[in-house]
């Protein structure tokens, strides 16, 4: 009973934390990118201001749109993003819905927001949005393959070391840092997989160079072309929360350490763990979102597919191979 109350109680906490952190990191992201482009950039709280403005504005539904689908999809995107966060270790504490869903569920939940965006775009009846939606689908198909390879390799490495554990459970993964079970060869393989996953994040989040679905100069924000007001704000929030969710997932798998395991902070340990988590979050977002975005131009959709299907998949497969050889040599 207490457990259920705790779980239900955690939902609003995680939701608010996810949204606030998501917007805050979005602001930091924008400011840093601006400074790296020798611009002044917006203030860090700009995303909050944007959301406030968007919530006050009218939500326009195009005449040719399928109204219910068009209005439903932003809600679905945000709720799916928030739900993802509940299954991932967050801010130094274990997943709120621990034991009710594992990594495979998280992977499915991560697909939901882009799917909602795609459906919403198709429902809007605009050509720009349709092209954007087609591109979003193709991008999604492209990055899922390296992502799946990476996740399977990690789980497999873990299962080789601990055959008895439920290796897809995220709390198990984050409690047993996978780096501990590696030989030099599989360490290298894991590192390569880590890099491949960092390359997948900008695609998942629709950031340059993989922002083909939004491509401002080509198809005028594509999938979001017809969205405005509250609906756009919801998508904006969903994207911010999803950024946090994906980065937290990467942290849970590859950088699961907590400060409290190394030092004794007694009752302050939760605070220090949370702070340390925020730093890790910043590092992941900085590398995969800000840094890559600033140094490369946007790719064509065909180049996105070849980047993911050939190069990133090859990298991931190489990592998998190294892990396999490493494990075989050890075993």
């Amino acid at each position: 009973m207490i457990e259920i109350v705790y779980k239900i109680g955690m939902v609003p906490v995680i939701a608010v934390l996810g949204i606030v952190l998501g917007l805050l990191y979005n602001g930091i992201d924008r400011k840093l990118a601006a400074r790296m482009q020798s611009r002044v950039g917006p203030p860090i709280i700009q995303p909050f201001i944007d959301i406030k403005k968007l919530l006050m504005k009218e939500s326009i539904v195009p005449r040719h749109a399928i109204k219910w689908l068009f209005n439903l999809m932003p809600v679905l995107a945000l709720s799916a993003s928030l739900l993802t966060l509940l299954y991932i270790p967050f801010c130094g504490i274990g997943p709120a819905f621990e034991g009710y869903g594992d990594l495979v569920l998280v992977l499915y939940l991560l697909v939901l927001p882009p799917l909602a965006i795609t459906l919403g775009a198709f429902a809007s009846g605009s050509h720009y949005a349709t092209i954007g939606a087609q591109r979003e689908m193709v991008t999604m198909i492209s990055y899922e393959l390296p992502l799946a390879i990476a996740i399977v390799s990690v789980a497999w490495l873990l299962s080789m070391a601990n055959p008895s554990l439920p290796v897809f459970s995220l709390s198990v993964i984050s409690n047993n840092p996978i780096w501990n079970f590696t030989t030099p060869l599989s360490f290298l393989g894991l590192l390569i997989i880590f890099i491949a996953l960092l390359l997948v994040i900008p695609g998942e989040l629709g950031k340059t160079p993989f922002d083909v679905a939004e491509a401002e100069t080509e198809i005028a924000e594509g999938v979001f072309a017809e969205y405005s007001g509250r609906n756009l704000a919801l998508f904006y929030l969903a994207n911010a929360v999803r950024t946090i969710a994906i980065a937290s997932l990467i942290i849970a798998i590859f950088l699961p350490w907590n400060l409290s395991t190394f030092f004794n902070f007694s009752y302050l340990s939760l605070l220090f763990d949370a702070l340390f988590f925020l730093i890790k979050l910043f590092v992941i977002i900085f590398i995969s979102s800000v840094f890559i975005r600033v140094i490369v131009p946007r790719l064509r959709i065909t180049q996105v597919v070849s980047t993911y299907w050939f190069y990133t998949t090859l990298i991931a497969l190489l990592g998998m191979l190294l892990i396999w050889i490493g494990c075989c040599l050890k075993g």
Binding site: M36, Q37, S38, R39, T208, P209, D211, A215, E216, T217, V294, I295, V296, P297, R298
Partner: peptide, 16 residues
Amino acid sequence: AAHELGFDSVLHYILK
């Protein structure tokens, strides 16, 4: 041209 390619860093650099 850099902006059309989605390469805003270069846009800002060149305009500076």
